[in-house]
């Protein structure tokens, strides 16, 4: 080609990887990750309330083991922002209590599946919804890890998400198994 050949784009360029851009990404992500703590604390607290009330020994065993896992998952939730080099939001633990209270009241007013049921069966329904919320938060944290090219964050969040997915199946099965006797006979779980 002669000297009039088309030119090239200059470079190299980085796309959103300049320090200011990237730090802003990390700030936004770590701020959002407080939601993971909040939702997980709400679930763990709900389990702590529910487990002592459970009378059926197998279900009590299932939920006790789930509570152990929930406490471990809560610690991981606090680790997530640290994986990005950020500290957990200060208010996350206390905020979780407020959220739990709000969530509990909202759930109590739902005239859905648990409406009219007597006894503590509706606790299982509440746990199902609260775990779903927390599981979704960990799943979003995993997506943030992928979007930020951060396998540390991704792997932490994925590990919990996978265990909570199994917990969700357990909760669903327990709730469905006990639904009929709770609604028809008013039996406690």
């Amino acid at each position: 080609m002669d000297g009039t050949a088309p030119g090239h784009p200059q470079g190299p360029y980085v796309l959103n990887l300049a320090p200011e851009s990237w730090e802003e990404h990390l700030d936004r992500a770590s701020t959002w990750l407080a939601n993971v703590v909040t939702t997980q604390v709400a679930f763990r607290q709900a389990l702590e309330i529910a487990v002592p009330k459970i009378e059926e020994p197998n279900i009590r065993q299932f939920l006790s083991e789930m509570l152990d896992r929930a406490r471990q998952h809560e610690e991981v939730a606090h680790e997530l922002p640290r994986a990005l080099g950020r500290e957990a939001a200060d208010g996350a633990r206390s905020l979780a209590g407020v959220v739990m209270d709000v969530a509990r009241k909202a759930l109590d007013t739902v005239e859905g599946l648990a409406g009219g049921a007597r006894g503590n069966w509706k606790d299982l329904h509440h746990l199902l919804l609260l775990n779903l919320d927390a599981m979704g938060a960990f799943a979003i944290a995993e997506q943030l890890g992928l979007a930020l090219a951060h396998p540390g964050l991704r792997d932490l969040a994925w590990g919990v998400q996978a265990e909570k997915s199994t917990d969700q199946l357990i909760l669903q099965e327990l709730m469905l198994e006990m639904a009929a006797v709770s609604i028809l006979y008013g039996e406690r779980v």
Binding site: P12, Y13, V14, L15, N16, L17, A18, E24, H25
Partner: peptide, 11 residues
């Protein structure tokens, strides 16, 4: 945040 391509050194 608007996407931004910025020049960077090879280093």
């Amino acid at each position: 945040m608007q996407p931004a391509m910025t020049r960077a050194s090879v280093e």
